[in-house]
Design a protein around this nucleic acid. Structure first.
Lengths: 227, 227
DNA sequence: TTACAAACGTAATTTATATCACATTTTTAA
DNA sequence: TTAAAAATGTGATATAAATTACGTTTGTAA
């Protein structure tokens, strides 16, 4: 289901898009298509040619990349946010894939239109740069945590990530299977299972299948920090 | 040793700076100071307030960040390249540190001057964005490799990195101690020692203290890929 | 409703790599 | 030049977490 979008009146505008003029937003609307994806659908795929910047209006998405041995989840993001700036601007073809983890509404902005805005609207360019900078610093920290924390700490960190960054709630349905969660925190299904039940037994979280309720925020933070 | 720099005639201009007009380059020169650092010197430090974009003209630099348990090297870069865009633009204070691994010549560009160029010269902004995008994609790949490769593969990868990305030669002096190298590939001094002598014994590299000569490029690539 | 597959839990075992311990070499400074 | 400190090499041991194995639950299609 693809439809032309009226960016001008879009309630999900990015910080960058908010600085665009009405004329520019109209132009963007003429060069942008929206699509809806169900959970599990591929939004874009590594290795495929792409000529769009993907903007995630609503929904949760996992970004994943082919590693030396298997596919690896590198990031989970929630809209509104840009999804594919690095993958598109730098190269002709996508350097990673994006898959919906919930119902997703995404806009595909023509890359040359986007480029025009960068080159002709300095404030827009600046906001895009800020966004990329934030991503880089976050990624640095994530890398260090993956290297230095033990799995228990990484699991705690991931649970807090879903709670704070994705669902804004201490009670939520995990949008991943145990295997996927294991992959996300660089571990395995079995280890995740073990640690989850540990945290449940210790009354730090309440676990009911995929539903997680954080019972002891303080201790969970402690585990996340101490690794 | 700090001196005002004539950016206009600088032979180390970044791809982005090459699109600046003569007037802009003169303005940059007026708002930019150069400094020289010896190996081991701190170029900027995490947590410290910063109002400059750091441009590495010449030299090798390690970027490192405080992790949950210890300081972690997140990146090693060679000039010419920007060093501190994410760390400076996003936040008032540095989110990571940079330390010289060789004699380094670096320029400290006033952040509001830099911001002016981003906002008033679209091509400049676009080149900066391209640069940030490349960094992000590279970082994605590095993360996956760290997670999925065994140490032997990560050591091989790091040796090839120094050979191809830093020294453009198959024979070079490692600018890191074994401990630092261990940290760089998320391992330890002892393990690095062991693997290095292994690779030496297998005649894949020639090892003489810190000097490395790659003897069997093909097998080293194989080890790097297979992990 | 049954049947089949996918997801999940858990215990036993294995393994890669960290840690420990100590000897040797190299570098630095006095 | 000598002494102290830092860096390095290497074997033995410990350990976190993967792998293996198998039983159970949940979801889904016929």
């Amino acid at each position: 289901m693809i439809e032309i979008q009226a960016c001008l009146i879009c309630p999900f505008k990015s910080t960058a898009a908010k600085v665009l003029s009405d004329d520019e937003l109209t132009l963007m609307g003429d060069n942008c298509a929206q699509a809806t994806f169900k959970k599990g659908n591929t939004i874009f795929k590594q290795g495929i040619f792409s000529s769009n910047i993907v903007y995630l209006k609503e929904g949760i998405v996992q970004m994943h990349i082919e590693g030396p041995t298997n596919e690896q989840i590198i990031k989970i993001a929630k809209g509104p946010t840009y999804l594919g700036i690095p993958t598109t601007l730098d190269e002709k073809y996508n350097r990673y894939s994006a898959t919906a983890l919930s119902e997703v509404h995404a806009c595909f902005i023509n890359i040359s239109t986007f480029k025009t805005f960068v080159q002709e609207n300095g404030q827009f360019a600046y906001e895009i740069i800020l966004d990329l900078c934030k991503n880089e610093v976050n990624l640095f920290n994530k890398c260090v945590n993956r290297v230095q924390k033990h799995i228990r700490g990484r699991v705690a960190e991931a649970i807090l990530f879903f709670s704070h960054e994705i669902f804004d709630s201490n009670s939520f349905d995990l949008p991943l299977t145990r295997s996927e969660f294991g992959n996300f925190v660089a571990s395995t299904r079995e280890t995740i299972s073990r640690i989850m039940t540990e945290l449940h037994t210790e009354k730090i979280i309440l676990l009911k299948g995929k539903h997680i309720t954080i019972l002891d925020n303080k201790r969970l933070h402690l585990i996340s920090r101490s690794g």
